[in-house]
C-alpha cells in the first residue's frame, strides 16, 4: 500500500455513550478504517467527552461496556485523540477522568484541525 494515497480522516464524536448508538457505531467504523492505513484523528467534544470517562460499569443496564476498546486504539496505530478543553470543563471533568491519553485542545485549535481534513465523519 506504499503508493496508495493517504487521506486525513477525522471522526467527530459529540454524543454520550449508551443513550444513543452513535458512540459505538463511531468506534466500530474507526476500527474498520484502521485497516486502510489512513491518517486517522478522533475528536471528542461536547457530550462525546463522556465516552472516555473512566470507570464505566454497564452490568446494571445490560449493555456492552465498549470503553475498554478505546485503550486498544493504540495497537491499531490510531494515536491522534483530541479532546475539547471547554467540553471537559463545563462537565466538571479533567484529563485524569479519562481512560486514555489524549491531547486537550481549545475550540479554535479544534476548528483549525478540522479544516485540515480530507474527510470528516460526524457522530
Amino acid at each position: 500500500m506504499s503508493d496508495a494515497v493517504v487521506k486525513k480522516f477525522m471522526f467527530v464524536n459529540r454524543k454520550a455513550p449508551y443513550g444513543t448508538i452513535y458512540a459505538l457505531e463511531s468506534l466500530e467504523v474507526v476500527l474498520i478504517t484502521a485497516a486502510f492505513d489512513q491518517d486517522v484523528s478522533l475528536v471528542f467534544m461536547d457530550d462525546g467527552v463522556y465516552q472516555l470517562k473512566k470507570g464505566q460499569q454497564t452490568k446494571g443496564i445490560e449493555t456492552k461496556n465498549f470503553s475498554p476498546a478505546y485503550r486498544a486504539l493504540e495497537g491499531y496505530d490510531i494515536e491522534k485523540l483530541y479532546v475539547d478543553k471547554e467540553s471537559l470543563a463545563v462537565r466538571g471533568l479533567t484529563e485524569d477522568d479519562l481512560l486514555v491519553d489524549v491531547a486537550v485542545l481549545s475550540r479554535a485549535e479544534m476548528g483549525a484541525l478540522m479544516d485540515e481534513q480530507d474527510v470528516v465523519l460526524s457522530f
Binding site: P17, Y18, Q56, K59, G60
Partner: peptide
Amino acid sequence: PDLEARGL
C-alpha cells in the same frame, strides 16, 4: 445503573 454505566 445508568450512573454506573457512565462511570459517574
